[in-house]
Structure formats: C-alpha cells, structure tokens
Design a binder for these strands. Structure first.
Lengths: 154, 154
DNA sequence: CTGCATCCCTTAGGATACTG
DNA sequence: CAGTATCCTAAGGGATGCAG
C-alpha cells in the first residue's frame, strides 16, 4: 500500500459504491426508466390501454427508432415483466406486445412524473434562461459566456 | 425519390421525432432524472434536508464520482434551478450547494419513485429470473438472447 | 413481418494534471 | 478546497443484411 494513489482509492470506492447502488431497488428502477426508449415504449403501450401493439406498430409510433433498439428495449421490458410478448403463428409471423399489470403501474408512475414536469417545467425554463442569460454576478456586459456544457440529449 | 432508402426516411423521422420529444416537458424532466448522478446528487442533498453540502462533501458522499461529473452535474442542476451554489470567500474557498424548493419537490418525486420501486422490485426480480431461467412457456430458440444490458450510464 | 448478427461511429464519462 | 482542461476508453445506438 505504499502508493496511496488517490485515484485508486476512488476507483475502489466506485466499485463498492456501484455494488451498493445496484442492490438498491430505487436505482434498479431508475436504470430502467433512465433508458430513453423504455419510457417511450411504455407510454406508447399505455396510450392504447390494453390493446396490444405489433412490432411494426410500435416502430411506426416511435418514429425514428431503429429495429435494433426497438427489439432490445422490448426484450428488456419483457424480461422485467413490464410487458408480454405474444407470437401469433400467422402466415406472416405476427407478434403482439401489451403491458402487464406491473407495466401499467409503471406507466402510472410515468404519468405522475409527467404531471410534475408540466407543473414545474416553467420554473425550470425560467431558471435556465436566467442562468444562460449570464449570471451577472461577475459579468457586466452580456457577451457570449457560453459554457458549452449542456448535457445534450443522450 | 429514386432512393427511397428506408434508412433515410427513418433518419428524417428521427429528427422530427426528436424535436417533438424535446418540446415535451415530460421528456425534459425524464432527461434530467435519467442521469445517473443527478438523482444521486439530489438525494444526497435531500437527505441532509436543508443543510448545504460542500463540493467535497458531495464528492465523499457520492463515492467514486469523478470531479468532472460532479461539477457537470452540479452545474446542470444549478442551471435548472434545482439547487443553488453559494461561494463563500473564505481563505480556502468554500462553496455550498443546497436544494431550492423546486429541487426539494423533485426530491419528493424521486421518493415516490423509490416507493414504487421497493413495492414492485420483487415482481421485477421474479420476472427476470423466470425469463433468464428459460422462458419455458413457448421456449423456442431464444435462450439468452436478452444479453444483459445494463444501460447504466448515459 | 419479426428480429438477430455485424460493423462502425459518436460520445458520455472516468482518470489525470494543473490553476485560482 | 474547488474547479477546469485534456486525453482516452468503453459502450450506446444507428445502418445493413440475412434468416425464420
């Protein structure tokens, strides 16, 4: 332990922390809804309430999603019991997806989030404008001061 | 229109869809809490309820986070009015971070998410085991196609 | 139609080193 | 202590093409 490399200690801490994080249900769910497409798929399915959607229906609804991500998302959701996948041995194979009760409750949660967002988005936007406009603290003349931060949109 | 490239059409759709998505407050918030560290920072700050934390306090609490991400996360949160950054011109500069009322309400939302997670995580885990164990029902050729996607960051 | 495999490119995010 | 600038890797996610 000669080299008490600060970095190594942090790296170690990260591992432990990660283990801790993963064992926390909150984070597991967070990981789930953190996926850009997951929430979109769930919402799409929730909108049709009960009515199952076919693979291509979803592909159309979620314009711009690549088949790869659609399948991947659907699979992970199926794995988590959020939705069920039903294969219909028709001539051209047909597969239907529909939310499970669990999935529906998740959709409900997303709705709650939506409500909060619509209720406070205004404040957030104001705060952003205020911030972007130049904090003014130590800035007299408005220039550009653009700190290219922005998390873009992953 | 010669090349009715399906890919191009999808790409175009994606752009439009993205624009649509971005204009939706729900997704803006989702983008916010989708960030791995955002929720962690907010929770950390919420736990101390009111008491402001210093930069290094947070770094210690969120073991394993790199200064880069900590700063980045803190900045975006400040920009959105979720927390306030206070610089204390002490000898060794001291900076405090604390949640705004808006941030506190967000923390409350995260709590709701947490409750849901703790309430249903069991079902999810069961579903996962069932799935990983081999669907059996209509066990076909799948096997473990799922591929353990962790999504984690991003 | 559904969906899996492959290649590839963009980029989030971790490690480091340096300044106020 | 608080942050910033830089480098670099891992991996998310799109495009394609093929198979059931």
């Amino acid at each position: 332990m000669a080299t008490t490399t600060a970095a190594q200690r942090r790296a170690q801490a990260r591992i432990e922390y990660d283990a801790f994080i993963r064992s926390c249900p909150t984070n597991q769910l967070l990981d789930r809804i953190s996926d850009k497409w997951v929430s979109l798929v769930v919402s799409a399915l929730a909108q049709t309430d009960g009515a199952s959607m076919r693979y291509s229906d979803l592909g159309r609804k979620l314009a711009g999603i690549s088949p790869k991500m659609l399948t991947q998302t659907l699979r992970s959701l199926e794995r988590d019991g959020i939705l069920v996948r039903t294969v219909r041995p028709s001539v051209p194979v047909r597969v239907d997806y529909e939310l499970t009760p669990l999935g529906t409750s998740l959709a409900g949660l997303l709705s709650a989030v939506k409500d909060w967002a619509e209720l406070h988005i205004e404040e957030v936007n104001e705060a952003r404008e205020r911030y972007d406009d130049g904090d003014a603290s130590s800035e007299g003349s408005r220039g550009s001061a653009g700190s290219g931060r922005s998390s873009s949109a992953s």
